[in-house]
Amino acid sequence: MADIADVLAEKVRAAAAAKTPLAVQGTNSRHFLGRAVESETLSIAEHAGIIDYEPRELVITARAGTPLAEIEAALDAAGQMLAFEPPRFSAESTLGGAIASGLSGPRRAYAGAVRDFVLGCRVVNGKGEILKFGGQVMKNVAGYDVSRLMTGAYGTLGVLLDVSLKVLPKPAASLTLVREYPVDQALRRMRELAGKPWPVDASCHLDGRLYLRLSGSPEAVETAKRRLGGEVLAGDELFWQHLRDWQLPMFNERPFWRLSLPAAAPMLPLDGEWLIEWGGAQRWLKTEQEIDVVRQTVADAGGHATLIGDQAGEDVFHPLPPALLALHRQLKQAFDPANILNPGRLYPEL
């Protein structure tokens, strides 16, 4: 529970001088995400602790090594939450890992992604410089939006030190409706609902059933329940928690695919086990099909595919078009000229 920013910066400076690559790590609960990095470890786990949390401001600032569990407990005590529901892969999963991997949970399509809630950050760039961007206020257009750029960059542009996040009040009431639906109809139904002001804040199609979570004031949830129909799912909190933390049976065995698609894309011609959420915009697939086939099918539908598993050398993330890759390399160069921060974790060229 200390601020060890200076120590971390010094280590990065030394590594940059010696051109030693560093694998930036919290508690390594996300080791199976992204490509493997062969290098010395830079642990930020000790750089932990909530720095500032005032519920009235709807903002929390914490060090990157702070366990998500600690942050969520503090928020919970004030009736607030991280609305983007980052997955927690272990009890020690850190804030830094959640921001760097940029993953969001079931509420994402309705409330926004991690990056939508990031207000500011303090980082160490690849030169070992401690820099601060954004802030603790809701609106801020001074300078380029480096805080959001860091989100989902897998630590390849900077070592996250502190992060400020917008938080939201928890809904007063919440319940889940379930109904049998074939997948095509479920996809259509999700789109119908998205175009109307229903208080839906999570949706999921799994094993022939459509799950809809309703949230808001008790009256609103009650009315929507009556009008939408379906069975009320008992113990629904656990269901969404398992979906959020990748603990449903279909996530048990890696590798599997995360497909990010235009929400209205039809069912794709790929055999396997499917789970659809985010109103159709995020789909999970377990398949025997070739990597190239999956990627091509998803790209043709306007989306991209990420392979989740511990496959060291594989291309995990969807390949970038040459012009975009070139721009990524220039950006990497702008932040980390010695190429020492998590080299190769995102793409071999970065």
């Binding site: 940029g102 994402r108 399509a109 992604a113 990056r115 257009v141 380029y144 939006d145 959001r148 750029l149 989100t151 989902g152 960059a153 542009l157 990010s260 698609l261 235009p262 929400a263 985010w278 915009a281 995020q282 306007g302 989306g303 991209h304 990420t306 993330f317 969807h318 390949p319 970038l320 078009p321 012009a323 975009l324 890759l325 721009l327 990524h328 950006l331 995102l346 793409y347």
Partner: peptide, 25 residues
């Protein structure tokens, strides 16, 4: 003079969040 597509019709895209970077630039 090069034409780039930044972001996508899906809710996220691979690589850095250039979409956010362009906003407010």
């Amino acid at each position: 003079g090069e034409l780039l597509t930044i972001g996508s019709d899906a809710l996220d895209s691979p690589g850095y969040d250039l979409l956010a970077l362009i906003h407010g630039s």
